[in-house]
Design a protein around this nucleic acid. Structure first.
Length: 743
DNA sequence: CGGCACTGTCATCCG
DNA sequence: AACGGATGACAGTGC
C-alpha cells in the first residue's frame, strides 16, 4: 500500500507536470469538454473528489501552481527539488541534442537570437546571455519569443524553480558532452555556464550601458567572422558562409550586397519565397517537444526499447534512439543540421542522398551556397535546395540569367516554411517515430484508447452497489467496464487497481445489498493478494492494526452476506486479528450490554434496524450508543468509500493523461506522416516542373530561361508559361488572400 | 522522536 | 425531519 501511494503521488507529479506541459502545447479544452471531466475539474475547479487525504499537511509552498488550493498537496510528497529534477529529466529526454538546434534556428524568423533551448530552465537563462549577442534591442523580441514557451511553463508552475536554480551536475555534464561532441545547440557554451552567465548578468545590471567586457566570445567571434563573410559557430568554432548566419539568427550582420543573384535566380526559388509560415513555429516546437516527451516517457518504461528501438539496419534510427544509458548520440547528420537546414534535410531525409556519406555532403553543399539570400528572407539556403532538387546544369542556367528576386512559379505550393517544418518533422520522425515503431505505438494506443477512463464509472459503480438488486444491471455494466479497464491497465504495467470491479462482481454474486462492512477491507485484501505489478510492487501486508473494522466472524449469519470463497480466504487472517481486538464501539456495546452485534447495528436497513430496536427494550443510553455506533459505522464505510474513490479518481486521471499523451503522439505522428507525404509530392511536383520546363522551347527552338519565365498553375488545372514578373505578381496576390483570411 | 501512511471519527453539507 | 452518503478536517496508531 505504501508503494501504491508512492506510485500514485509519482503519478500525480507526472500529471501535474503533464498538465503544465500539455496545457502549454495542447488544446486540452477539447479533451476536457468532451472526454475528461476529471481533467476539466482539476483545471477549471476541482471537486473534492480529487483532493488528497493529507489535508492537515502544509499547504503548497511552491508558488505558481495552477491548481486549486484545495487540490493535491504536491509538496507534501515532493519537494521542489524533486519536482525540478523531474522536469529536468523530462527535458533531457525530450530533447536529445540537435533537433533543438534546428528549432532554435527557425523559431524566430526575424532573426533575433531567441536562444531557445530544450530545457526550459536553460532557455530562460540562455536567453539572457544571448541577449548581448543580438544587440540591446533584442530584449523585447527575446522575451516575446521565450515566454511563449518557457514562460507558460513557468506560469503553470512546472518549472519555476529551475530558472534561478543552479544547474545540476547532470546539466553541466550534459552541456559538456554536447559541447565536446560538437553538437550545435544554437548557442555558445558560455550560455550554459551558469557562473559565466551569472557574471554576465551581474555585470549587465551594473553596467547596462554595455561595455566591451560583456560581449561574450561568441559575439566576438561572430563579429570577426562577419568581416570576412564568415560566421563562426560559437560552440564549435567552425566558420561557415554568411548565408548560414541567418540560420544562426544574426541577419542584420549579414551584408546584403553579398547576395548572389545567380543563386537567387535558381529555379528553386519558388520553394523559398514563402516568408510566412503556414504553421505556427511555436506550435511546431511544442509538437516536437511533445514527441520527445513521449520518447522520454516510453524510454523510461520497459516497452520503450521495443517501441523506439531502431529496427536493424536503420542507421538513423539507431543513432537517434534514446536509450537512457546513452542519452546523447553523436551523429554527423545532426551536426549538419546545425549548419544548415537544407543540409540537414538533405542528409537526413532525401532518399537519394541518404545513401551519401554524411560528412562529405556538407562541404559539397557549401560552395553551392556562398552567400546569403536575404531578399528571400529564407532560412534555407536556396542553393542547398537547388542542389537537392535540380541537376547541376539547371543550376548553371539559372545562375546565369536570373534576377535578384524570383516569383513563385509553383504558386506558393512549395512553401519554404513548409519544407522547414517537414524537415524538422522528419527529424522528429526519425527520432522517435519510425513507421514500424509508429504503427506499434499506434496499436498500443488504439488498444489503450478503448479504456474509457471516464471517472464517472467509479461513482456509478459505487451507486450500483448501494442500489442492490434493482441496479444490478447498471452495476454489472459498471463492473465490466471497470474490470476491463483495470485489467488492461494492469497489462500496461501501471497501477492495477482492480478492487472496484472485483468487489462489485463479488457483490453481485452474493446478491449483497449495500456496501458491505468488509468491503473496503476486502478490497485491500484483494489488492494485497493481487500479483505485484512490474512497476508497483505491493507490500506484503499492511502493517497497520486498526481495530475499527469489525470482525467478520462477529456477523450474524442471517444479516451478513454469505461469504464467498475468495472473500473468505482473503479475510481469514485479518479476521483473526480483528477478533482479538474489538473496536472501541464494540467495547462500548459490550459495556452497555447491547443485545446485538455492531454489524447488525450498522448494516441493517433502517426498517429492520428499527424493528430490532423495538424488539429489545433499551435504555436511553443504550439507544444513544446504538445510534452512535450505527452512525459511526456508516460514516466509516463512507470514509473508506470516499478514499477509495479518490484513489480511483487519481488513477483514472493518470490513465487519462497517459491516453492523452498517446493520443497526442498519435496525432502528431499522423501529422508528420502527412507532411512527409506532402514533401514527397512536392519533390515530385518539382521534378515534373523541371521536366516540363526543360522541354519547353520558344519559336526559335531555344529553351526558356528559368530566370525569365515560370510555369504558372491555373485554377482549372492548366499550366501556363508566364514571364517571371507576371507570375510573381500573381503569386503575391495569392499570398495576400490567405493572410487576410488568417487575420 | 518526527514523519508518514492509514484509519476512524466528527462536523457539515446535501439529496 | 430523519436518514444516510460524501467529504474536509482532525486525531490516533503503527511503522
Amino acid at each position: 500500500m505504501l508503494s501504491l501511494k508512492k506510485y500514485l503521488t509519482e503519478g500525480l507529479l507526472q500529471f501535474t507536470i503533464l498538465l503544465s506541459l500539455i496545457g502549454v502545447r495542447v488544446d486540452v479544452d477539447t479533451y476536457l469538454t468532451s472526454q475528461l471531466p476529471p481533467l476539466r475539474e482539476i483545471i477549471l475547479g476541482p471537486s473534492s473528489a480529487y483532493t488528497q487525504t493529507q489535508f492537515h499537511n502544509l499547504r503548497n509552498t511552491l508558488d505558481g501552481y495552477g491548481i486549486h488550493p484545495k487540490s493535491i498537496d504536491l509538496d507534501n510528497y515532493f519537494t521542489a527539488r524533486r519536482l525540478l529534477s523531474q522536469v529536468r529529466a523530462l527535458d533531457r529526454f525530450q530533447v536529445p541534442t540537435t533537433e533543438v538546434n534546428a528549432w532554435l534556428v527557425h523559431r524566430d524568423p526575424e532573426g533575433s537570437v531567441s536562444g531557445s533551448q530544450p530545457s526550459s530552465g536553460l532557455a530562460l537563462e540562455s536567453s539572457s546571455s544571448l541577449q548581448d549577442v543580438a544587440g540591446p534591442d533584442s530584449g523585447v523580441r527575446e522575451s516575446d519569443t521565450e515566454q511563449g514557451f518557457s514562460g507558460d511553463l513557468e506560469d503553470l508552475g512546472a518549472v519555476a524553480p529551475p530558472v534561478s536554480g543552479d544547474l545540476t551536475k547532470e546539466d553541466i555534464d550534459l552541456i559538456d558532452i554536447l559541447w565536446r561532441q560538437d553538437i550545435d545547440l544554437g548557442a555558445g557554451r558560455e550560455v550554459f555556464d551558469y557562473s559565466h552567465r551569472q557574471k554576465e548578468q551581474d555585470a549587465d545590471k551594473e553596467q547596462r550601458d554595455g561595455s566591451g567586457e560583456q560581449e561574450d566570445t561568441w559575439a566576438d567571434a561572430g563579429a570577426e567572422a562577419l568581416a570576412r563573410d564568415l560566421l563562426v559557430d560559437g560552440e564549435t568554432g567552425e566558420s561557415f558562409p554568411a548565408q548560414f548566419s541567418e540560420v544562426t539568427s544574426l541577419p542584420e550582420a549579414v551584408p546584403s550586397e553579398n547576395e548572389s543573384p545567380a543563386l537567387q535566380n535558381s529555379l528553386l526559388s519558388p520553394l523559398l519565397t514563402g516568408t510566412e509560415s503556414p504553421f505556427d513555429l511555436e506550435q511546431q516546437w511544442q509538437d516536437l517537444m511533445s514527441i520527445m516527451e513521449m520518447q522520454a516517457m516510453e524510454a523510461n518504461t520497459s516497452t520503450g526499447d521495443v517501441l523506439y528501438g531502431a529496427p536493424p539496419g536503420d542507421a538513423l534510427g539507431t543513432n537517434y534512439s534514446l536509450a537512457p544509458s546513452t542519452p546523447i548520440n553523436q551523429n554527423v547528420s545532426l551536426h549538419q543540421a546545425s549548419l544548415g537546414g537544407c543540409g540537414q534535410d538533405f542528409s537526413l531525409f532525401s532518399p537519394e542522398v541518404e545513401s551519401l556519406p554524411a560528412p562529405g555532403s556538407s562541404p559539397a553543399l557549401l560552395p553551392l551556397a556562398p552567400s546569403n539570400s536575404s531578399g528571400l528572407n529564407s532560412t534555407f539556403g536556396p542553393a542547398g535546395l537547388a542542389g537537392l532538387f535540380f541537376p547541376p546544369q539547371l543550376n548553371g542556367t539559372a545562375n546565369d540569367t536570373a534576377g535578384p528576386e524570383l516569383p513563385d512559379p509553383l504558386g506558393g505550393l512549395l512553401d519554404e516554411a513548409m519544407l522547414d517544418e517537414i524537415s524538422l518533422m522528419d527529424l522528429a520522425i526519425e527520432e522517435g517515430f519510425h513507421p514500424a515503431q509508429a504503427s506499434r505505438l499506434e496499436e498500443e494506443f488504439d488498444s489503450d484508447s478503448g479504456l474509457s477512463l471516464d471517472s464517472s464509472h467509479s461513482p456509478s459503480s459505487l451507486s450500483g452497489s448501494e442500489g442492490g438488486a434493482s441496479s444490478s444491471s447498471a452495476s454489472s455494466a459498471a463492473s465490466s467496464t471497470s474490470s476491463s479497464a483495470a485489467a488492461s491497465f494492469s497489462e500496461e504495467g501501471a497501477v492495477g487497481y482492480s478492487s472496484d470491479s472485483e468487489a462489485l462482481d463479488l457483490e453481485e454474486a452474493e446478491g449483497a445489498v449495500g456496501y458491505q462492512p468488509e468491503y473496503s477491507k476486502w478490497c485491500r485484501m484483494s489488492l494485497q493478494g493481487a500479483a505485484p505489478l512490474p512497476r508497483l510492487p505491493f507490500p506484503e501486508h499492511v502493517g497497520h492494526n486498526h481495530t475499527y473494522n469489525l470482525a467478520p466472524g462477529a456477523l450474524d449469519a442471517g444479516d451478513a452476506a454469505p461469504a464467498g470463497g475468495p472473500r473468505k480466504g482473503a479475510r481469514e487472517k485479518p479476521a483473526e486479528l480483528l477478533e482479538k481486538q474489538p473496536s472501541r464501539d464494540e467495547h462500548r456495546a459490550r459495556a452497555m450490554q447491547i443485545p446485538f452485534t455492531n454489524d447488525k447495528i450498522v448494516n441493517l436497513p433502517v426498517e429492520e434496524f428499527n424493528e430490532l430496536l423495538a424488539k429489545h427494550p433499551l435504555s436511553e443510553a443504550q439507544l444513544s450508543l446504538v445510534r452512535d455506533i450505527r452512525r459511526r459505522g456508516k460514516n466509516k464505510m463512507a470514509a473508506q468509500n470516499c478514499r477509495r474513490r479518490k484513489l480511483d479518481t487519481i488513477l483514472n486521471l493518470e490513465r487519462d493523461v497517459e491516453a492523452l499523451r498517446r493520443d497526442k503522439a498519435r496525432l502528431l505522428r499522423e501529422k508528420l506522416e502527412a507532411l512527409r507525404a506532402l514533401r514527397q509530392l512536392r519533390q515530385k511536383l518539382q521534378s515534373l516542373y523541371q521536366e516540363v520546363f526543360g522541354r519547353l522551347r520558344d519559336e526559335q527552338g531555344r529553351p526558356y530561361s528559368p530566370s525569365r519565365y515560370a510555369l504558372q498553375y491555373a485554377g482549372d488545372g492548366s499550366v501556363l508559361l508566364l514571364p517571371r514578373a507576371l507570375a510573381e505578381q500573381q503569386a503575391r496576390r495569392q499570398e495576400r488572400k490567405p493572410k487576410e483570411r488568417r487575420k
